[in-house]
Amino acid sequence: MDRFASMEVFATVADTGSFAAAADAAGISAAMVGKHIRQLEEHLGVRLLNRTTRRQSLTDAGRDFLERTRIVLAELEAAEALAAESRAKPRGELRINAPFSFGVHSLSPLLPIYMTENPEVSVRLTLSDRVVDLVDEGYDCVFRAGLLRDSALIARGLRPLRLIACASPTYLAQHTQPKRPSDLARHTCLGFAGSALEERWTFYGDGGETIVPIVSRFSTNSGEALRQAALAGLGIVLHVEEVLADDVATGRLVHILPEWRSERPLHILYAPD
């Protein structure tokens, strides 16, 4: 039997003065009240109550135990209230890992909003283009772009990352600008190493899906390095729209194939517990 429950019943008997009144207050039978008291006394090895046919009174040991019981029950109630508050109101440190470019351009602008809405949460954000081990490296959640590997982690799908194809004015001055995705096969492209984007790009338009094999003269697993390569005129890049938005707005890069869209899956992963 739950010892805390028995202690609560004991305190109720002490307050009400009888098993019957305690039973009414606790919503259980008088027989169950008696069972709680007997088991508590057997566990402690002392008598807590002097019993008469009509009323129960505390023994000396019972009075001492009641004093401590009230302290324990008050602490238990406070602990339960704290746990309930924690569920309702996030608090503590949230440890996040995200790809570098996505973290800088897409995630970081939103974190101040989240932290303002949750003032008792502190955030530790680590940006890395390598695949981290969430459990071993102590993260609460990680953001991952692209197809997921099988794992024991829980994955929640988010809005896919919108990708745009861009090239520098220098590159386009030396090459004919692509008019359709199939034209990319005749261009130098910049591939994202270790992903499907290193070998083929997928576009969606009025004609449906188009998959284009690409030739990567330069590939890297760093989104920022890909951006820099595109700015330097090394080739055409397919990258997250938010990452290239400023470059397109200032003319450092030109958005090509604007009538075609491309995207990459995005998930947030966390442990089952």
Rank of each mutant, 00 (worst) to 15 (best):
L253H: 13
L266V: 10
E241K: 11
R91E: 10
L76G: 09
I236N: 13
A14G: 11
S195H: 12
L234M: 15
R51A: 14
S122Y: 04
L234I: 02
V131M: 10
L82Y: 00
G138T: 00
T202V: 08
L226H: 08
P109Q: 03
A245L: 04
A145V: 06
I164N: 06
R87T: 00
S106W: 06
S6K: 07
D273H: 00
S108Y: 00
D273C: 00
H43Y: 07
L161S: 14
P169H: 10
F4L: 15
R38C: 06
F65L: 08
S168I: 01
F100H: 12
L82G: 06
V135A: 15
D150T: 02
A83F: 00
F218D: 04
R180W: 00
I154S: 04
V33M: 05
R144I: 07
L127H: 05
A5D: 14
P112T: 04
K89D: 08
N118K: 07
Q39H: 14
L40V: 03
H187D: 10
L161E: 12
E67I: 03
A14Q: 09
A83K: 10
V9A: 15
L44Y: 05
D247G: 05
M32A: 13
S182T: 12
A83I: 00
D15R: 15
V237G: 15
